[in-house]
C-alpha cells in the first residue's frame, strides 16, 4: 500500500472564504456547535432587585436583547441556559438560587449582574445580604454597575458569547458538561441560627489570602 502522506494542513481563512464562495462550508464540529449555542442563549426569567428592571429594559424594544439570540426568557430553569443573577442575593434567597442553578441542565452559564451579585454591593454590611453569589455557584461573567446600563448587560452577554465560542470540546479545558466525571450539583446552604450554613462553598470561593506587613 502506498504511503497516505502527511495530514493536510489546516486551511487558512482565505482558503475557507474561497471555498465558501464556491458553496462549500468547511468548519469543525466545535466551531459549529459553539457558534450555534452561543447565538441562542436563553436566559432564565430571574430578577431579584433593581438590576432586574435594567435587565427588563435590555429585553425591551430600545435595547433589544433578542437580536443577540436571547429572544425568550424562560420561566423554568429546566429550559434555560443562562442565569443572570440581577440584584442583591440575600441569605434567605441564596438556597433558592443554588437550587435553581442545580436544576438548570448543562451547558449552563451564570452572569453576576450588578455590584450586589458580585460582592454584596452597597448592602455588603448586612446581616441578611450574601456577599456575592460566587460564594455558592460558579460565575462566568461579572458586570459591574449599580445598576449597569442595559448596554453593559449586552456587552456582558457578548463577552459570554465569545467565551462560549472559545470553549474547547475535548481535552482538559473542556467545559463541565463535556467532562464525564464533573460534579453537577452544588450543595444548597441551610438556614442556621445566625447565618447560612455553610457561609460559603469552600471549593468554590475563598477570601483572598493576604499577609500583613508588620506595622501595617
Amino acid at each position: 500500500m502506498s504511503d497516505p502522506g502527511p495530514p493536510p494542513a489546516t486551511p487558512t481563512d482565505a482558503e475557507r472564504d474561497e471555498l465558501r464562495r464556491q458553496g462549500i462550508l468547511l468548519t469543525s464540529m466545535e466551531e459549529l456547535y459553539n457558534w450555534g449555542r452561543s447565538r441562542s442563549v436563553w436566559p432564565l426569567n430571574f430578577g431579584l432587585a433593581c438590576c432586574a428592571i435594567e435587565m427588563m429594559a435590555a429585553s425591551m424594544a430600545r435595547f433589544d436583547i433578542a437580536r443577540f439570540g436571547s429572544e425568550v426568557f424562560r420561566p423554568s430553569p429546566r429550559q434555560a441556559d443562562l442565569i443572570i443573577v440581577s440584584g442583591t442575593v440575600t441569605k434567605k434567597m441564596a438556597p433558592q438560587v443554588v437550587r435553581l442553578w442545580n436544576q438548570m441542565p448543562e451547558p449552563k452559564y451564570c452572569i453576576a449582574m450588578g455590584a450586589c451579585a458580585i460582592s454584596g454591593g452597597p448592602f455588603k454590611q448586612g446581616y441578611n445580604v450574601l456577599k456575592g453569589i460566587d460564594r455558592y455557584i460558579p460565575v462566568d461573567i461579572y458586570i459591574p454597575g449599580c445598576p449597569p446600563r442595559p448596554e453593559a448587560l449586552l456587552h456582558g452577554l457578548m463577552q459570554l458569547q465569545e467565551k462560549m465560542r472559545g470553549q474547547r470540546l475535548t481535552g482538559p479545558e473542556a467545559p463541565p458538561h463535556m467532562q464525564p466525571g464533573a460534579a453537577c450539583d452544588y450543595p444548597v446552604p441551610a438556614f442556621g441560627a445566625h447565618d447560612l450554613e455553610p457561609p460559603k462553598n469552600p471549593e468554590l470561593w475563598q477570601p483572598p489570602v493576604l499577609v500583613r506587613k508588620e506595622g501595617a
Binding site: 441569605k91 434567605k92 446581616y127 441578611n128 438556614f191 442556621g192 441560627a193 445566625h194
Partner: peptide
C-alpha cells in the same frame, strides 16, 4: 416576617 424562621437573633 423578614428573617427566616430558624434565625435566633433580633438584628
Amino acid at each position: 416576617i423578614l428573617m427566616w424562621d430558624e434565625f435566633k437573633d433580633h438584628p
